[in-house]
Design a protein around this nucleic acid. Structure first.
Lengths: 221, 221
DNA sequence: CGTCGTATTGATCTAGTTCAAGTACAGTGG
DNA sequence: CCACTGTACTTGAACTAGATCAATACGACG
């Protein structure tokens, strides 16, 4: 394992110099999870900041009727648990490793001390928060007001854009993608087939999708 | 107008002493808006923190298809605009005064200085952020996975609980409530009638609702 | 090569939207 | 104080997107 493996890749610690990163590294704890393993559950006491150093973590909630809603897909370098860094709260969501995943955590108290010492950290945390809030606002608006077809079209073009390519592998199982978009796997299947029939995309083997006409795709109502 | 009218009622400035509040007050700008007036729009440059000192502000987004989604209802003491306090961004939502409303604003630069001087402010901002994030996560989950009936039932009991009474006036027009819950005014009407027929609530004149059986209401699927 | 989880496809069903028409109601001006 | 007007709300009837249920097909992996 490389030195600073988590610490150095986390945006919230950028702008800190080597010796400071060393200090942080020394108070961090490392964990490894296998694919499918639960990292945290709703109702767990929330007293640590979690950093994904490698792998992929699915963060989801359960509704009263037991249905699952995927909220975030944390990639390496992303953090979770900020929501209650200063208050005693409990988690409201579940975290599950989708692939073998390395995670480090910092205890609340230690993190608070860090923030006192290096104010730039809190500014970075605020930024991360802000982005997440904006993203979630968009997600809320779109699940509440747009058709499944439009949401899926959006998701495909956004994913392609962020990967800078027209051909990419879906990073999620259809089941998870379905809960992310607030629908069912069956509907996803059907809509993808429909997009293909319209010539907007091409489905290749192994969850690989090629987008043929992003503009037209976005016009989907 | 009372001295410190905005500043003193904002949770993010709590723990600060009088002279500090004076300083803050001196850099704040005041505005008044009439009911129905637009306070900000999507795409506006976001360079101020906004504080609602009196009144009520509806914050909403527009989806691609033009439909409106209500995100927050800001009450006096609440703030908005934190999302981009440190980055140049543009607004993604609209703000509209629902009743005559007083607002004060602080320029980004001034606020950043404040945070440097009084670190407790940034901690308070983090907390506000965190709460909003948690609330929005719940809203996302529930619009995406629960029936309109369940969401409405939830909204009614939560509102009642937060006001500490069983009889209350809906703080929103049905039209706005509908976009908040991700549905239509017609559906709200019908569901309320249904709840009344089931004896779970009683509808009185002028948007006043009395909850008769909160427990049963929550069991609505 | 069989087995288990995942994906597709088809048929049916329903919650909620949409459109349209009518009603209550608050505010304004005479 | 009442009539007038515009907005909000309700109710009904028809329609549809998408969920659900069930059966089948696929594909990865031991």
């Amino acid at each position: 394992m490389a030195i600073h493996e988590c610490v150095q890749l986390v945006p919230i610690f950028q702008e800190l110099a080597e010796p400071q990163l060393d200090t942080i590294e020394s108070i961090v704890r490392h964990h490894h999870y296998q694919a499918g393993e639960t990292i945290f559950s709703a109702d767990d006491p929330l007293d640590q900041l979690m950093i994904v150093s490698a792998g992929q973590v699915k963060v989801y909630q359960l509704a009263a009727n037991g249905r699952e809603q995927l909220l975030y897909l944390l990639q390496s370098g992303e953090i979770d648990g900020e929501a209650a860094l200063f208050e005693n709260q409990r988690r409201t969501s579940f975290g599950e490793a989708l692939v073998p995943t390395d995670v480090c955590s910092i205890r609340r108290e230690d993190f608070q001390n860090l923030m006192q010492q290096y104010p730039s950290i809190s500014i970075n945390v605020l930024n991360v928060f802000g982005k997440r809030l904006t993203q979630l606002e968009r997600q809320t608006t779109s699940t509440a007001t747009e058709s499944v077809e439009a949401r899926l079209a959006n998701y495909l073009t956004e994913t392609a854009a962020s990967l800078n390519t027209n051909t990419f592998k879906l990073p999620l199982k259809k089941k998870d993608l379905a809960t992310f978009l607030g629908t069912t796997p069956e509907t996803i299947s059907r809509k993808l087939t429909r997009f293909e029939q319209l010539g907007l995309i091409t489905q290749k083997a192994g969850k690989v999708i090629q987008i043929n006409d992003a503009d037209q795709l976005l016009l989907t109502e």
